[in-house]
Every structure is written in C-alpha cells, then in structure tokens.
C-alpha cells in the first residue's frame, strides 16, 4: 500500500474515531456517574441532526447558531426525560429505565418522521468547503473541527471530573447518591446536569459529524452500537478510555472498510466486542 493512501486512511479513521468518541462522551458520563442506560441516545443523535438541518434549511439559520439551538433543544429534552423517570432513577429500576428510553426512542423516530419526512437530507456545513492538504493527505475544515472540538471537550470533561468540586461530587454520586450532598451540591441538580450534558454533547456531535453523509429519520442505531462498544472497551466510566477506544474503532473501521468490506464494518466491530467480552469484561480503563 502506498504511504499516502495509508496516511489518508489513518487520518479518516482518526477523524471518524474522534467523532464516535464525541458521540459517546455523554453516554459514558451517564453510565459511569449515574449508572443509567439511555437507549434513546442514537435517536437523539438523529433528532439533533434533523433539528440542525431544519433550522439551516427551513429557517435560514447559520451553521453555528443552528448547532447551538439544537444543543439547547436536546439538553431540554434530556432533562424532561430525567424528570419523567425520576421515580425509576431513584429506585435504580434499570430494567424499566431501559424499556422507557427504548419507548422514547421509538416515539422520537415516529415524531421525526412526521415532522421531517422520510427523505434523506443533507446538512450543508460551510466547513466542508474548506479544503486543506498536509503532504499527500487531504482533510476538510470540518474534519479539523471535529478533531479539535473532541479533544477540547474531552480535556474539559477530564479536568472537571478530576479537579473540580463538581467533578468530585459526580464521582461521589457514582458511589452513593447521598455522598454527593457532602460536597454541597444538590444531587438532583447534578443529575440534571449530567442529562443535559448528554443531550448537548450528542447534539454537538451530530452538528459536526452528520454533515458528512445524508441523514434519515430511521438512522441512529449504528451510533448506539458504536457508543456502547466504545464505552465497554474503554472501560465503563473512563473518560480517557472512551477517547482511546473511539480512536481505535474509527481507525479500525476506516481500514476494514477500505480493505475488506464497508458493509460489514459494524459487524466486525461487534465481533471484536464479543471477543472482548469473553476475554476481558471490565474494559481497559479504570471503570467505576
């Protein structure tokens, strides 16, 4: 293989992988800190993509404001979800929470179909027009943005968790809900913050990544799988683990799609997960 081809695949994989990691960060925090599984995550990604598209295409918004509004919408949606499931969250009824979020996911799929229709759409990000060349390797402004934003968000989350009072409270929340109060932070607000973060981060991810391909109201399932695989391999609750795992998976898919088959890339990823589960169920990072 030519070096330039190899490097291009590597770069594509890196961009895609960091993108997956950005999609996964909200879910990692939710699962690691609050021990909750949100099956609507992939559908929320789809919804955020469509909100962004709709604002840009139908309401004449610029790219960045559209993404910001979409982040707000999703954050609010997630907080609404949190309040709906307040009782189940308190009793740690994970079975019900899983089914409820699954139901919400289906509602969102139907609602998106009603509002946005069934035809594929495209988000026209102006960043894509920016073409850069590094040696023989090509990337767009959007690719660069994905890299930068993901690294910044991860660094920020990492710092907050490790260095701030909020972070300490969140880690205490993971251990025992009542302990969080020791840090003077209301656990209900903390939980709301975690949910809002999940919504906002997945919307941000959608705004940056969805422009790369057509969007459909039936999409979102692949994102759930990728997120899940990242979280498991990276270690449940491990922020750096998620970043590394995302990167690894992105690069894997890039090479696998180019050299073997793009249709079965996800299947290959899943097969890797299964092997992983048998060999090392607790992941690589320091989980909680």
């Amino acid at each position: 293989m030519q070096l330039s081809y190899f490097l291009q695949l590597l770069l594509n994989g890196t961009v895609a992988g960091l993108g997956y990691a950005l999609i996964a960060i909200g879910w990692t925090i939710l699962l690691g800190m609050a021990r909750l599984v949100n099956f609507a995550h992939g559908t929320m990604y789809m919804l955020a993509a469509f909100v962004t598209w709709y604002l840009m295409r139908m309401q004449g918004f610029e790219y960045l404001p559209a993404i910001l509004v979409s982040c707000l919408v999703l954050a609010v949606l997630c907080i609404v979800m949190q309040h709906m499931m307040a009782r189940q969250i308190q009793t740690q009824d994970l079975t019900s929470i899983m089914i409820i979020t699954l139901g919400i996911s289906y509602i969102l799929t139907g609602a998106a179909g009603l509002f946005f229709g069934g035809t594929p759409q495209n988000i026209a990000s102006p960043l894509r027009a920016l073409r850069l060349t590094v040696g023989d390797v090509r990337l767009t402004g959007l690719d660069l943005t994905i890299i930068l934003v993901t690294l910044i968000i991860y660094a920020a989350v990492w710092l907050v968790l490790r260095r701030s009072r909020i972070g300490a409270a969140m880690r205490a929340l993971a251990e025992d809900g009542k302990l969080a109060q020791l840090y003077g932070i209301n656990p209900a607000l903390l939980l709301g913050g975690i949910f809002a973060f999940e919504g906002a981060s997945v919307a941000l991810a959608a705004g940056l990544i969805a422009p790369r391909a057509p969007i459909l109201t039936t999409m979102g399932f692949q994102e759930v799988i990728l997120t899940f695989v990242i979280v498991v391999i990276g270690g449940i609750g491990s922020v750096p683990g998620a970043l590394v795992a995302g990167l690894a998976i992105g690069i894997f898919i890039s090479f696998f799609s180019a050299l073997v088959s793009s249709a079965f890339a996800l299947s290959a990823v899943f097969a890797t997960l299964l092997v992983f589960l048998v060999a090392r169920p607790s992941g690589f990072g320091k989980g909680i």
Partner: peptide, 10 residues
C-alpha cells in the same frame, strides 16, 4: 403509529 406505540410503552 410509532409515536402511539412508543407512548403506550412509556
């Protein structure tokens, strides 16, 4: 119908 079924479950 999707909205209905999802809402029913929830």
């Amino acid at each position: 119908n999707k909205v209905f079924l999802g809402a029913l479950l929830v």
